[in-house]
Amino acid sequence: MRPISHLADRDDAIAYAAFHTFVSPAMRAAARVPLRRARHAGRACLAPTGDGWCAECEETVDDLLMESSAKLRRALGGEMPKTRAGQPVREMVLVCEHLTSADARNEDAATWAMKLRRAEGGDEPWLRAAWAQLVHYPLLHLEERTRRADAVRRGASARPDRDLRQAAWAAPLRGDPAALELLIVLVFRVRRRVPDPFHVPDDLRERHRLTRTEASRRLGTALVALRAANPGFFAANIGEPVTGHAAKPPVDPQDSITTVVEQARARATLTRLLTARADEPMRRAARRRSYRHLIAAICALGTGRRAAPVAMAVRELGVTPTQAARMVRRLAILVAAAGLEWTDQAVEAEPVGAGAL
């Protein structure tokens, strides 16, 4: 048995071992859903082998446990957190009083750990206080904090909305307030990994009195302007390569599109994606048809019709939902750069032609 009183032991190693036993199960249970939403689009987080979570989520929980433990150690050492009125936080006082009481020496940390997971509505005042101070408050806004930290780690902006509204390089983007807001919403939708980030929400569109077609057109124009104004910001916050599965796609848009995309280059890339040869292998022709269907679905969304390109990519190309979302995102960028009307007409054209791969 590891007594709960060990959390107040002078030896940091003994204290942290007891703290981990007591708090870790509740911390992991409470952090599971926010981390899934932030990093895995709501799906389960699994380790490559064995039990546990992915390395990033394990690291996040370990850091949270260390920070929570340090907070408790400071309180036990006399640095009690204070309220805005300058009074000691009553919940932390209750926790420290119990951990240093005579009863704590005979209480098993593992037994209390199981109760801590359900302590939010429990009967023990000190246990409810422990849950609030050691689990609940350290996890406040965890989902958003994780998204922001991950974005910064991969080179994206911590505050993309502030950059787009205030940075000198973004001045050309601020000429159209509606397009700027569409762009800001898109950045956050990409960060939140929504299935169709390029779909303009109806409330936003109606607030600016835009039709679906006009909203898509303005967003496409804003994307092209953003690439030209700051290719690095675009690549880090929006742009991702098309990821394939099994057979290699006939043309990878990432190979044909540069950070400063011109309309002609985007159209050339889409033309190569859509134009087939009569004698090309069956497998390649089937994949090209799938690209045609995907691009048609993206155009349908852009003109206000119902379509589900991500689900279509999963079904027709055999990729994962995450890969499908990235693929659709990149194709949508191409469509926006090439022009929605032009792309829609290209999709409707005869699929077999003389174009070479």
Rank of each mutant, 00 (worst) to 15 (best):
R292A: 06
L180I: 11
A129W: 07
V319L: 08
A266W: 00
T111Y: 09
M66D: 09
A47Y: 05
R191L: 04
R272I: 01
M27K: 02
P231H: 06
A313R: 12
A336Y: 07
L64F: 00
A337T: 06
G86E: 00
R287T: 09
A156P: 08
A38K: 07
E240V: 13
Y16L: 09
R283T: 12
M312S: 10
L180H: 12
A278T: 10
E280K: 06
V23I: 01
Q166N: 13
E67T: 11
E56I: 05
C57S: 15
I4N: 04
D108N: 15
G353D: 01
R212Y: 10
P321W: 04
R288P: 07
P88L: 03
A158T: 11
R90C: 10
P3A: 12
R128L: 00
R10L: 11
G155F: 03
P81R: 01
G175T: 14
A338S: 14
R36K: 07
P125H: 06
V352Y: 02
H20N: 14
A308T: 07
Q254V: 10
E316Y: 15
P321H: 01
A26F: 05
E79V: 06
A276S: 08
A15N: 13
A278W: 12
M80Y: 13
G121P: 01
E59Q: 08
G244A: 14
V260M: 04
T83H: 00
V328N: 02
K71C: 12
G77L: 04
A70V: 03
S216K: 14
I14S: 11
F233K: 03
R305Q: 15
E107H: 09
R209C: 07
D11E: 06
H199I: 15
A286D: 15
F233A: 00
L204D: 12
M282F: 09
A151M: 08
A113Y: 03
L226H: 02
P81K: 02
A18W: 09
M66E: 05
